[in-house]
Amino acid sequence: MIKIIKVRGASMAPTLASGDYLICTKARALRPGFVVVATHPKYGMIVKRVKSVARDSIALEGDSHESTAPEDIGAVSIGLVSHRARWAVTPKGFKRL
C-alpha cells in the first residue's frame, strides 16, 4: 500500500526539504540508511533516517547537523515505524531515497 506523506521542517536537509512529499510503502525489514516515518511517543509523526537496528527497536537520526542527536530521540520501537519513504517528490522533480 503506497502512502503519500508531506515533510514539515528542515532536520532532514539536504536530503529532504520542508514541503517535499514522500512516496512511502509499509515498513518492513528495516536497515540502517532507510528513511522512515515513525510515530514517536513524544514527538508525534516524524521522518528520520534509520541509524541502527536492534532486535525490537531502532535508532533514528536526522540528516541535518542541526537535528538532535539520536540519543535525545531515544530508541524507537520497531512497531512504531509505519512506513519507509522510497521517493521524494520535490518542486524540482523526483528523488530516490
Binding site: I5, K6, G9, S11, H40, M45, I46, V47
Partner: peptide, 25 residues
C-alpha cells in the same frame, strides 16, 4: 507532480522533521 500533489494537502498526513526534536530553530 509536486504542484499536483499539493492540491490534496488537506488529505495528506504530515511528518515532522523539525524542532520538536530540537534543531535549534
Amino acid at each position: 507532480l509536486h504542484s499536483f500533489i499539493s492540491k490534496f494537502d488537506s488529505n495528506i498526513d504530515t511528518a515532522d522533521a523539525h524542532c520538536d526534536i530540537p534543531c535549534g530553530i
